[in-house]
């Protein structure tokens, strides 16, 4: 039961993008087409789940055990960077088109604050291993949901009559604000 709660909390109620403002850069950068947004979401979900799976043992069995928890940022960043590198290799191999479409945003997952934030929250909230993985996966799913919603709206926006002053980045940010407002409705349902 707790696992389901963690999953739903991470993906909807405490959605990283829309309630914590983490991971905004790909959220705005790669959300112009649904296909790219979905791929970006899947790649980030993969990285997030593996991050949780890798950083938890690193933290518990190495950093805490040897009494050097102050190394957590460095250790987490190294682990995340390695995972992103892996994802990049895989995508490059499996689909050059997606690789080109994602461009710079793919390596930028390395410094995506949502991923590091996930690792730090996990430590902060004392999750055990299974909970951490669910938390990581839920966060990734939440990220993907936000990406998909954003890209869906932005695709419709192509045909909408946007006033000239709002065109481009500004209307995107306004929409992001409205979505955050909508997600406020979930606030307080579960912690």
């Amino acid at each position: 039961m707790k696992l389901i709660l963690i999953f739903i909390s991470a993906s909807l109620i405490n959605n990283f993008v829309l309630t914590y403002f983490l991971g905004i850069c790909p959220f705005l950068g790669v959300s112009n087409k649904t296909e790219n947004a979905l791929n970006m979401g899947l790649a980030t979900t993969f990285v997030m789940t593996l991050t949780a799976a890798v950083t938890w043992p690193i933290y518990t069995y190495i950093l805490v055990k040897f009494n050097v928890p102050f190394l957590e940022y460095v250790a987490f960043i190294i682990a995340i960077a390695a995972l992103v590198q892996l994802v990049e290799m895989y995508i490059r191999k499996s689909s050059p088109a997606i690789y080109r479409a994602m461009g710079i945003y793919l390596p930028l997952i390395t410094t995506n604050c949502a991923v590091l934030g996930l690792a730090l929250f996990m430590v902060l909230r004392d999750y055990n291993y299974i909970e951490s993985i669910f938390f990581g996966f839920g966060t990734g799913v939440g990220f993907t949901i936000a990406m998909l919603m954003m890209s869906g709206i932005r695709e419709e926006l192509e045909f909408a009559d946007v006033p000239e002053v709002f065109q481009g980045v500004s209307i995107t940010l306004i929409i992001a604000g409205m979505m955050a407002l909508a997600f406020m409705g979930f606030a307080g349902l579960i912690r």
Partner: peptide, 13 residues
């Protein structure tokens, strides 16, 4: 510890 983590990850990569 950092060296160990780095080494394992780089081997894996």
């Amino acid at each position: 510890s950092m060296g160990g983590i780095g080494a394992i990850l780089s081997l894996f990569l």
